[in-house]
Nucleic acid binder design. Structure first.
Length: 109
DNA sequence: CGAGTGACCGCAA
DNA sequence: ATTGCGGCCACTC
């Protein structure tokens, strides 16, 4: 049972991250909340760390709008480049207009 | 099986 | 406003 729930949570996170459009960012807390675990932001980070690299983790940042990843291929440098490549301006590792770029999905289907 | 870690968040002093 | 602490969840040792 618990295993299934854990798996579901992971699957949810994967799905959500995979749906993040280019030029948009999302916070761990937001993802965790939408997944059904409001305070499982840390878990999202763990899933991101051990999860597949097929997903745009570089669009996932912490509540401060700072790139917490740094673990993505290329390190923070690559991360910043990727974000900039998507019209996301980053200054001092902080996303500009982060509030505006924050993508809020309309409830998981 | 038990304990520790971590790409976090929120609240209290 | 800033700093410190706890709590939650998943994964590894």
């Amino acid at each position: 049972m618990s295993d299934l729930l854990n798996k579901q949570f992971r699957n949810n996170v994967y799905d959500l991250v995979a749906v993040i459009p280019s030029g948009r960012v999302m916070t761990y807390g937001q993802i965790a909340t939408i997944c059904g675990h409001p305070n499982a932001a840390r878990a999202v980070g763990q899933i991101a760390h051990f999860g597949p690299s097929d997903l745009p983790w570089h669009r996932v940042v912490n509540k401060k709008g700072i790139m917490a990843s740094g673990f993505v291929p290329g390190g923070k440098q690559g991360q910043k480049s990727l974000l900039k490549d998507e019209d996301i301006k980053v200054v001092d590792d902080i996303i500009v207009n982060f509030r505006e770029l924050l993508w809020q999905p309309k409830i998981l289907s």
